[in-house]
Design a protein around this nucleic acid. Structure first.
Lengths: 246, 246
DNA sequence: CAGTGGTCTAGACCACGGA
DNA sequence: CCGTGGTCTAGACCACTGC
């Protein structure tokens, strides 16, 4: 494990376990250097990460302090920030918490991409997988997902892989590396199909996440639209103000 | 301007203006050091920022490359990433683009905080401002916002400030520094009041952003719920995969 | 003024990919 | 093997805060 990651993890653990309490001043940068036996820039990297996660505030000329965690009416915890900023399959994300996830495949076919999908995938034309799945967690409806992937990039996808985990297939069978994704989030109404699949009533609002995902070499390998019910983990973000603090 | 920020801006500008085209290899880290006359770690910081913005991919042992920008069916641009990750008032955000924003104040009062608001603000009890506003951009309905702020932290807020910009009041009149915020995003249906205020029809889905905002010293100064129409800029996020690339 | 965090340097060393 | 990016060091210098 990287030193800066270790330090960030260690401090986060100490904060969450109340070793450092809200409003406590953390050791100064110099002290942390001595404690962990690293240089200032490494400590700084770890602290920057904790600020990003919302656990810590720094003030130049004053010190670094543990935030009062805004529990946002009890519906948010700071705990899953790390996971929330990583891409992974829905399935592995929930399974790590030891929860059962069930997928229902409504469609799995190869189609000619239309202009919207071509544009999103950055291709001029070609055949793509079209996959439509609903997911349930402990029998509660989680989401319906529409996925488009060029067959040229992801060859040999099988029905079994689709029922299991596509991301696992890509990383472990094709040995491609997934690097990043861009998402746009909006609110929509459930379609009639979605009402049927998810068992929700007409006029249920869903959170739509439109995602473009990149391989390590910058190739777009996936364009997907996922519509989440209230049972999905909500999307969370941290924003930082224009730098003035220190 | 910081050197690493300057380099990131300069490279971003060169990418967006097609000086560096999609799939082009960028100059190596060493070359960039010479070009900008800075050390490797500074170049690295700039490149990391560009990776975060989704413009660039790096591959250890190979090089750094311009991403094919996934334009996500044309509804997303990479251009406003910097702004999107900063907190600022809605008003200043849109006004920077030279667009007229109009606010309608439905409520501006001081109330005793209920348990939900107390919990969100991290206080045990006390009086808070309750502000309910709708915003319109070029006469299109943008959002309705419900804001709660402790009067002990933000004293002396006036109706004029509320009609204008609360964030300006906090930073320029109270001289407090706003540092960061946490948001949770979900989909909801417009309430009858919101339908009336925003002029949208019954059963319109809205994007709800529940936000807790922190001052530089870690104090929570605001708990707000904003419900966005389709005319609001959509929420955007970038996710990074567990590190494997380099 | 002293103490804090923030940025940056020059260079060392490592991990990875490809020839 | 070389060239790439990634992490880290020791220390310099600056900016901000509060005394």
């Amino acid at each position: 494990m990287l030193k800066c990651d270790f330090i960030a993890e260690d401090l986060q653990q100490k904060i969450l376990s109340n070793h450092y309490k809200p409003n406590d001043q953390l050791p100064t940068a110099d002290e942390l250097c001595k404690i962990y036996g690293v240089s200032k820039i490494t400590v700084n990297k770890a602290m920057t990460e904790l600020v990003h996660r919302g656990l810590v505030s720094r003030k130049r000329g004053v010190g670094s302090f543990v935030n009062r965690m805004g529990s946002a009416s009890g519906r948010t915890s700071s705990f899953d920030w790390k996971d929330a900023t990583l891409i992974e399959g829905t399935k592995s994300h929930y399974q790590q918490s030891g929860v059962k996830v069930r997928s229902v495949v409504h469609a799995f076919s190869v189609i000619q991409a239309n202009t919207i999908v071509c544009d999103a995938l950055g291709i001029n034309s070609g055949f793509v997988y079209y996959i439509c799945r609903s997911r349930f967690i402990e029998e509660r409806p989680l989401q319906t997902e529409y996925t488009y992937m060029p067959i040229s990039i992801i060859p040999g996808l099988s029905q079994e892989d689709v029922e299991d985990s596509i991301y696992q297939f890509i990383e472990h069978k094709l040995h491609l590396s997934i690097s990043s994704s861009h998402s746009t989030i909006r609110a929509v109404l459930a379609s009639p199909d979605e009402c049927k699949w998810l068992g929700v009533s007409f006029n249920t609002p869903l959170l739509e996440v439109e995602q473009t995902a990149f391989l390590g070499d910058g190739t777009i390998f996936e364009y997907s639209v996922t519509r989440h019910t209230e049972f999905s983990e909500p999307e969370r973000t941290v924003k930082l103000h224009k730098r003035k603090s220190g």
